[in-house]
Amino acid sequence: MSEEKHHIVSYRTHAFVLLALLVLTGISVAITQLEMGPMNTLAAMIIAGIKAAIVLAWFMHLKFESRFFAFMVSAVVVVFLLVLLVTFFDYSYR
């Protein structure tokens, strides 16, 4: 009944994605052992963001679904970041 075409992701791709995620994990563990002050947090969050994007795109198939799914995810992330931002309008200026 379901007539949509399904994109089958190859095992090789999955393995590469895992490899990338593991490398990024290693980098983030290594980088946070250095003393870089607030840059630590920034670096760790950027790496986590990249890892999340990879998981979303490949493991969660966003890359292969209709564009609307990716749009929804981005919209939700934006809403969350805005909530965080607006909350800090309070906490940054107390």
Partner: peptide, 9 residues
């Protein structure tokens, strides 16, 4: 809340 939050909201 902070003043800035007040007028933002």
């Amino acid at each position: 809340m902070s003043g800035r939050a007040l007028y933002t909201f």
